[in-house]
Simulated scan of single mutants.
Amino acid sequence: MNRKKRTLAAHYRQGVAGEEAAAAYLCAKGYEIWGRNYRFRRAEIDILAFGDGVLVVVEVKTRTRGFYKTLSHTVSPLKIHRLVRAADHYVRAHGLDIEVRFDIIQLCGKPGNYELVHLKNAFYYF
């Protein structure tokens, strides 16, 4: 396996481990996981969770070392637009009449030893 493929595989495993840790964190906080890796067109929602009467769309960001941007700037305007479209599709496809909130969970470190930051209402769209 060449170096680029090895790096991509490691990056993918890191992301999966981060999403697992984020889902476990949400469950421990009383959220119910409704979906993972929900895809609509060119968007993917990492985690769909329900808590406090709200559907929470969670974008998970995982790094082994520190973040260079502030947490609220780790999701681009294009990514936000795609997440909103995917969330709207999910709500309509499931016939839900529910408030939607967009959160970011940032994990820094290695699996089993993450520093986790949960930013609720990371951005407003509706």
Rank of each mutant, 00 (worst) to 15 (best):
F126E: 14
K79M: 10
R13E: 13
Y114V: 04
Y68R: 14
C27A: 14
V54T: 12
Y12F: 15
C27S: 15
T7F: 12
A43P: 05
A49C: 07
L107V: 02
E44F: 08
H94T: 15
Y114E: 06
K120R: 15
V16I: 08
W34H: 15
R63W: 12
K110L: 06
G66P: 02
L107K: 11
N2L: 12
L78F: 05
A17V: 04
N37F: 10
V117A: 14
R36A: 03
I47V: 10
P77G: 00
V84A: 08
L116N: 02
A24I: 11
L48V: 03
V58W: 03
A43K: 09
W34G: 14
F67T: 14
I47R: 04
G51S: 09
E20L: 13
V56A: 09
T7Q: 15
L107R: 11
L48S: 08
V60A: 05
V84M: 09
I80D: 02
V57G: 04
A93M: 09
P77Q: 04
V84R: 05
N2G: 10
H73P: 01
F40C: 02
T7G: 11
A122Y: 00
A10D: 06
A43E: 09
Y114F: 06
I33W: 07
R36P: 03
K5F: 12
G51N: 05
V60L: 03
R65S: 15
P111V: 05
A24T: 12
R82K: 08
A24K: 09
V84T: 07
A24G: 14
G53F: 00
H118Y: 08
Y12S: 09
G15L: 11
V60N: 02
N37R: 11
K5C: 09
I45F: 05
V16C: 06
R101G: 07
V84Y: 10
K79C: 06
F102A: 01
R36E: 09
L78S: 15
G53Q: 00
L71T: 11
H73Q: 14
A22N: 02
L116S: 07
A21Y: 05
L119G: 02
T62N: 06
G35K: 00
V91N: 10
F50E: 10
I47N: 02
P111D: 04
R42Q: 11
K29E: 12
N113Q: 12
N37I: 07
A24F: 10
R3F: 11
D97G: 15
L8K: 05
A87M: 02
Y31L: 11
L8W: 08
Y12V: 13
N113V: 06
M1R: 04
V91R: 05
V16H: 01
A28Q: 06
K79Y: 08
K69V: 09
V56K: 13
A87K: 08
A86F: 03
K79L: 13
H89P: 00
I33Q: 01
C108G: 04
R63I: 13
S72L: 00
A17K: 12
K4Q: 14
T70S: 14
L55N: 00
M1I: 10
I105G: 01
I105L: 11
E115N: 13
S72F: 00
K5R: 15
E59D: 03
